[in-house]
């Protein structure tokens, strides 16, 4: 029963878990390790699998906790902006100048979001990049739905202010 559930509900969300772990850790190898550990943990608590309404959110929560533990224990540092710059894909390749400018803008936005507190950053990523609903985010972060909205509002406000600063003064 739980094996079938595990194979049908948990295994298919591995790519999502991996993506989530990667965003938190900024490192593919560690993200893979965390996903593996999370799946082991999920399997060890298999008796809870049938009780839970949203298995995906539960798995995401486990991944987040493991990733945060790893960040804490290793005094881990997110990879430097210069290293990460290569990961941001160029959007429109009209001409080299426009492409370089586009890259620059992406890097700026990336660093604005990366500088947010972890909770804000995660909420923005879950909502604006992964497209989770408020309820799912509340489940993943184990907080109230009202808190999700409040935190999202604050996170977006902070991003907006910094974007305006960049646009007006060209500084961060």
């Amino acid at each position: 029963m739980s094996l079938a559930l595990f194979l049908s509900e948990v295994v298919p969300v591995r790519p999502k878990l991996y993506r989530f772990a990667y965003r938190l850790l900024g490192n593919e190898e560690d993200a893979m390790d965390v996903v593996q550990d999370a799946l082991m943990k999920v399997w060890q608590q298999q008796e809870r699998m049938t009780e839970l309404q949203n298995l995906e959110a539960w798995c995401m929560r486990i991944v987040r906790n493991l990733a945060l533990d790893r960040l804490k224990s290793k005094k881990y540092r997110r990879s430097e902006e210069l290293e990460r710059a290569g990961d941001v894909p160029a959007m429109q390749q009209q001409n080299p100048y426009a492409a370089a400018e586009q890259q620059d803008v992406m890097k700026r936005v990336h660093s604005i979001i990366a500088s947010l507190p972890e909770k804000y950053r995660t909420i923005i990523q879950l909502r604006d990049i992964d497209g989770y609903s408020y309820l799912e985010i509340a489940d993943i972060l184990a907080i109230e739905m009202a808190d999700v909205k409040i935190n999202l509002h604050r996170a977006r406000k902070s991003v907006r202010e910094q974007l305006q600063k960049v646009q007006v003064y060209g500084v961060q």
Partner: peptide, 13 residues
Amino acid sequence: EAQPLFGYFAAEA
């Protein structure tokens, strides 16, 4: 002002 942000989200996704 919002253009780069949504561009970034699309690129990240």
